[in-house]
């Protein structure tokens, strides 16, 4: 999806710059492809240790306190993803009753595109659930998230 949106954007760039044509749908397609790519990888990014966090204090704590922190952190992640999931349905329902479509001539109902959010929320939830599980088994669920992966 990510590569597809790169290709579409490239096509749009060349089209606009060299051929004087502009595809009004290109912008929207790229946006929604990336939004989907984002929500579908939000859990995977966690498992691969990409989410930003601060280890400064935690790594100085004793094992028991550290596990408590991991437990709380997992619980916070679980709560947030659960709320994200729950909160997405009124909006999906509203898009559905309103019948709002995309702005360009893609003609896709927005409620379909918005489904990315509950799906992403489930994947996010599963990730934090596994963190919780690993904490309870006595492992460090957030190990391996090195700062080198942070791209800023």
């Amino acid at each position: 999806m990510f590569l597809a949106s790169t290709v579409i954007m490239l096509n749009e760039a060349f089209g606009r710059a060299l051929l004087n044509t502009s595809y009004f749908w290109a912008e929207e397609t790229v946006r929604y492809l990336m939004v989907w790519a984002f929500f579908l990888t939000v859990g995977a990014a966690g498992s691969a240790g990409y989410h930003i966090r601060t280890e400064l204090l935690v790594e100085r704590l004793g094992k028991r306190w550290r596990q408590l922190c991991h437990f709380l952190s997992s619980a916070i992640g679980l709560s947030f993803s659960a709320i994200l999931f729950y909160a997405s349905f009124p909006q999906i329902y509203r898009y559905y009753t309103m019948g709002m479509m995309t702005e360009s001539n893609l003609d896709i109902p927005l409620w379909v595109l918005f489904l990315a959010m509950p799906i992403g929320a489930v994947l996010y939830f599963i990730y934090y659930f596994s963190c919780l599980w690993r904490t309870l088994k006595g492992e460090d669920p957030f190990a391996g998230g090195t700062p080198i992966k942070i791209d800023f």
Binding site: I52, L72, F80, F142
Partner: peptide, 18 residues
């Protein structure tokens, strides 16, 4: 506190907003 205990920045901010 959330940040200090090593919670991911994204969900810490998200839950506070909630």
């Amino acid at each position: 506190i959330f940040l200090a205990i090593g919670t991911h920045v994204s969900v810490a901010l998200g839950l506070v907003a909630v």
